[in-house]
């Protein structure tokens, strides 16, 4: 199980890598989404906001979100740390993505681009 500190470190690293890629800023222009990350085996949760081509972690719990990711904390951490392609746990049922199909595919591709695929 991954604790909240480890997840904070992973998400901070993810956000800084994302924000360092100008092509991602261009691709996500106009795509403004709040992403809720909810581990099924831990009490903590985290939220990300994609806005104006940049990603940041949210300090406050948002009232609304467009995307909700649910899975084991280790799976969620592996995805944002680039150790696991999101599609694999998704196809195995280890990751549930509550969102529109379009958002799901965008998130998949943006996550991969952060790690240089």
């Amino acid at each position: 199980m991954v604790d909240s500190r480890e997840m904070d470190r992973v998400l901070t690293d993810f956000a800084s890598r994302f924000n360092a890629k100008p092509e991602l800023a261009k691709m996500t222009a106009g795509w403004e989404r709040t992403i809720t990350i909810e581990p099924s085996d831990a009490a903590w949760r985290r939220d990300l906001r994609v806005e104006r081509g940049l990603v940041r972690t949210l300090e406050q719990v948002p009232e609304k979100a467009e995307i909700r990711l649910v899975g084991r904390s280790s799976v969620l951490a592996d995805i944002f740390a680039g150790r696991l392609s999101p599609t694999e746990p998704y196809l195995d049922g280890d990751l549930v993505v509550h969102s529109s199909e379009e958002d799901m595919m965008k998130l998949d591709i943006f996550t991969l681009m952060v790690w240089g695929e």
């Binding site: 709040t34 809720t36 939220d47 719990v61 948002p62 009232e63 609304k64 979100a65 467009e66 909700r68 509550h98 969102s99 529109s100």
Partner: peptide, 8 residues
């Protein structure tokens, strides 16, 4: 009482 709700 006020969980985050999904937009869509």
């Amino acid at each position: 009482d006020q969980p985050t709700v999904l937009q869509r």
